[in-house]
Amino acid sequence: MSTQSYRLRVNGADHEVAEGWIGESLLDVLRDRLGLPGAKNACEEGECGSCSVLVDGVLSCACLVLAAAAIGTEITTVEGLGAEGALTDVQQAFIDAGAVQCGFCTPGLIVAIHDLLDQDASPERLVVEEALSGNLCRCTGYGRILEAVDLVAARRSAS
């Protein structure tokens, strides 16, 4: 197997990847080599959003990023969103709104919603729906998730 050693910058810290098979996706490397299982493995073809991360600030599916080619980028995963153990407002809203059931889609949605609200502080419902249309959830029917987004937007504008 063709391998490569390289360094990735994830959540502000450098990580060495020693002799990784070059076919490994960023999702594989985060989960299996770097101990960051927050990005989830549900489809591995970009059709579910469970592995959403930010690569240089761009919302991406980690399963579609060749890890060894992501050298020199800043990668942010769900683990890197909040300050040391504290909940972000999006995470808190998910709990308050009842947006979590099995939780498998949750980390990807949290990352996607942060990305959305960083670009548009109080998005229209349709904008939210389109922005989250790449994140499948099988438990909730999305009702409480959309509620959580509204809750964050309302709390941000109130503060």
Binding site: G46, E47, V55, L59, S60, L64, A112, S133, G134, N135
Partner: peptide, 9 residues
Amino acid sequence: IGSPQIRNV
């Protein structure tokens, strides 16, 4: 095309 994540890259 695809999802927002796909369209981003």
